[in-house]
Amino acid sequence: MSSAVRVSVDEPGAVGAPGAGGAVASGGRDSSVDSGIRAVARIRAEVDARGVSRLPVLEGEGPLAVRRVRSSGQEARVALVGAMSAPLGGDRLTVEATAGVGARLDIGSSAATIALPGQSERPARYDVRLSVAEDAELRWLPEQLISAYGSSLRMTTRAELAPGARLLLREEQVLGRAGEEPGALTSRLTVRCDGRTLLDQELSCGPGAPGGWDGPAALAGHRALGQLVVVHPELAHSPAEPRMLGEHAALTPLAGPGLLVTAVAADALLLRRVLDEAVRLVAW
């Protein structure tokens, strides 16, 4: 990552074309311009006449490169590939993913996303907008978000589901790289289903977060936390049974056609172990 040269996308040639192997244009960030990078990735899956999900839209730029991944089934698979270090302070990244009516879309990422300090004093923003149409299915299973020391990131993930849509969503936040204090991180997760908000929760941690974020009510020294959300129409009729998944993770039905697993763990590896078990339990 250190070899990647960061440039503002406002500069000519800075937009990395999809399929460009993560290469970015040469040139440096002008330190007098405190703009940060703006980049948008767009993914859209639609089902064809044979029931196979295709990707009529697959666009990335700058640090947000997207790759088609070979699929063994009828779903479309995409990997977000980190093309350079991002987000840094002042950057503004957006991922927009849509599964059209009846489509099946599976999105992962090739590596963890690391929020790092930048030249800008402003926090970075990372906004994920997911849209799942009727009878469509979206699996959003990216790798961890790591909040490095000195970084400041405001992340929002918003999923909008039509009636009958299915969602499997995992988010993991890791506070600091190994043995490091965390950066400032605020992450809001909102899931809307058929026009109603099914889940709305925000977590703030690190320097500048409201008091008590690391205390016995919130994280109590744990450095990795995660959420797994499942939305499925069947859960409206037969809600999930609440259960503990070990001492520091709980599965609970939401007030609607969904469930949530909340977990905290000492580190990313232990967290993933719990969430992998949860996926096996709850994925359709």
């Binding site: 809001r188 925000e202 977590l203 703030s204 609440p242 520091h248 993770a249 609970t252 905290v264």
Partner: peptide, 15 residues
Amino acid sequence: LPAASAPLLDIGAEA
């Protein structure tokens, strides 16, 4: 409206 959450309050309540 704010949506601030505390993971261990939620996990502890289920336990």
